[in-house]
Structures are given as C-alpha cells and as structure tokens.
Computed example of a mutant assay.
Amino acid sequence: MPSLPPVPPLSPASVVTALRAAGCVFAEDEAELILASARTPEEVAAMVDRRVAGLPLEHVVGWAGFRGLRIVVGPGVFVPRRRTELLVEEALAQAPEASVVVDLCCGSGAVGAALAAALGPVELHAADLDPAVAPCARRNVAPFGGHVHTGDLFSALPGELRGRVDILAANVPYVPTGEVALLPAEAREHEPLVALDGGADGLDVLRRVAAGAPSWLAPGGCLLVETSERQAPSAVREFILAGLDTRLAVSEERYANVVIGVRP
C-alpha cells in the first residue's frame, strides 16, 4: 500500500486560532506548550485535536508544572493545582527537618515529590485509593526514592510508619457531592470522581483523615489538608476534635486554604 503523505506542520498562528475558537482563554500560552512538547507535526495536530475536544491541557501534553517540577500526568489522573503549592509551603515551614513524609490521596504524587525535592533525602510514601493513578505517581516520586501504595487511606500504608510520620499531607477530595456537576467540564469529565467528590458536605474524607492521623504522626508531626474557604471552620473543628494543635493558612491570591494540625 502506498504510504500516506506527511502531515503538513501547523503554524503557531493556526494552533492559536484553533485553540481560541475552542474557547481556550490562554490560547497563546497553550499553543506554545503544545508546540514545545510535540516531537512531530503529527503530534502537534493530535494534541490540538485533543485539546479542542476538551481534554485538560496537562493531559494533552502529559505533564503539569508544580513548584518548579514537571509532574507527569495522564488520562484519568487528577491534575495538581497551583493553589496546592500553599500546602507544600506550609508543610516545609512547619517541619523543615522532616525525615518521614506521607502523601495521602496522592493522585500524581505531586505533593510528595515537591516536598522531597525541597527537603532533600527523606523516606517518602505516597498512597491513593485509585490503582489507575499508581503508574504516574511512581514516575513522579521515583527520583526521590519514594514508594507508592494503593488502598483506602491509612490502610494502604506500611504498619511500621505508625507513630513516625513527620509530614502527613492529604489533598483530600472536598467538593460536596451535589456540586460536582457544577465543576468545569475539564475536571468533571476527565478527572476521577474519587479525587473530587468529598461527600454530602465535602468533608467525609477529611474527617476520616483527621481522626486517624494522630496515631500515625510522630510527636510534633503535622497533618496538612486543603479545603475551601466555606468549609474551613468545620475542617478546623475536625482537627481540634482529633486532638491536634490547629491553625488555618490562607492565600487569598491563590484561593487556597490549608488546615494544619500538629500532634502535641
């Protein structure tokens, strides 16, 4: 059979035009990323088609930027948000000498990777309920010697970690079930529901994490969980009920709220 003619290269302007027509607000920036990530004209065309079809840009190019790292993400993997960088910053401020780090509800493993990158050599563990995210998480924590586990919250972790964890970062799902349908289509249609849906009031998983954390934390170890501004007072109460010394960190610029609890 005769070979097909090669796909003609798309010009940067034509990529921008296609993305803008699809409703991409930052079409110029997205076009630049696609053109830099694709290796051939065929890949450029395929990436543009996937983005125009509504896939998140990070799934299209295969990575997301997070605290200066290039985090591998793929279809069906929760894309790390820049607002979650506040959680990492607060963890580093609270426990700058941490040696044992757990990234619970890890998704891509971005939080654990960012913590390990900043702390230097640590014992790093990442865990998630969804086995489909494990390959991405392994790729992202492997440069830091991290281990990935699959299972329901603390049941996924090796028992020998109990009472030894210096930083327990848990980017739990916190969208109330009734509001999942209001999320942008990129999240609603292309990210796992288990990474978004936090139950009736959005705090189901947070409650379980707060209640279970003290027995896993080392003395002085800290638990950090991201939540919304509306949910923050209730989240703080759950941490206090668990016996943790609790405070709330807020970044209005990033629309980020992080509850920090320290084991006395």
Rank of each mutant, 00 (worst) to 15 (best):
P9H: 12
S11T: 15
S11L: 14
P12S: 05
P12V: 01
A13D: 14
S14E: 15
S14Y: 05
V15D: 00
T17R: 15
T17I: 05
A18R: 14
L19K: 09
A22K: 10
A22G: 11
G23M: 10
C24S: 12
C24R: 14
F26P: 00
F26E: 13
E28K: 11
E28L: 07
D29E: 15
E30N: 08
A31P: 04
E32Y: 10
I34T: 07
S37C: 10
S37V: 00
S37D: 00
S37T: 14
T40L: 06
P41Y: 03
P41M: 05
P41N: 09
A45L: 14
A46S: 10
M47F: 02
M47R: 03
M47C: 06
D49L: 09
D49T: 15
R50S: 13
V52P: 09
V52F: 05
V52G: 06
A53N: 10
G54M: 13
P56M: 04
P56K: 07
L57A: 06
E58M: 08
E58G: 02
E58P: 03
H59Q: 08
V60N: 01
V60T: 03
V60M: 03
V61N: 00
G62H: 00
G62F: 00
A64R: 12
G65E: 14
R67D: 12
R67E: 15
R67G: 03
R67A: 10
R67V: 07
L69D: 04
R70S: 14
R70L: 11
I71P: 00
V72P: 01
V73S: 01
G74E: 02
G74D: 03
P75H: 05
G76D: 01
V77T: 04
F78N: 02
P80G: 09
P80K: 06
R81K: 13
R82P: 03
R83Q: 15
T84R: 12
E85N: 12
L86R: 10
L86D: 06
L86V: 11
L87E: 05
L87C: 07
L87D: 05
L87P: 08
L87K: 13
V88A: 09
V88T: 11
V88G: 10
E89C: 06
E89N: 09
E89G: 01
E90V: 11
E90Q: 14
E90N: 08
A91M: 12
A91K: 09
Q94Y: 09
Q94H: 12
A95S: 15
P96C: 11
P96S: 09
A98Q: 06
S99G: 15
V101R: 07
V102S: 08
D103R: 03
L104Q: 05
C105E: 01
C105W: 00
C105S: 03
C106V: 04
C106Y: 01
G107K: 00
G109C: 04
G109F: 02
G109I: 01
A110T: 02
V111I: 15
L115V: 08
L115E: 03
A116Q: 07
A116Y: 06
A116D: 03
G120S: 11
G120Q: 14
P121M: 10
P121H: 14
E123P: 02
E123S: 12
E123K: 09
L124R: 05
L124A: 04
H125Q: 06
H125E: 08
D128V: 01
L129K: 02
P131N: 02
A134E: 08
A134N: 07
A134G: 06
P135S: 03
C136Q: 13
C136S: 13
C136N: 07
A137I: 03
A137N: 02
R138A: 09
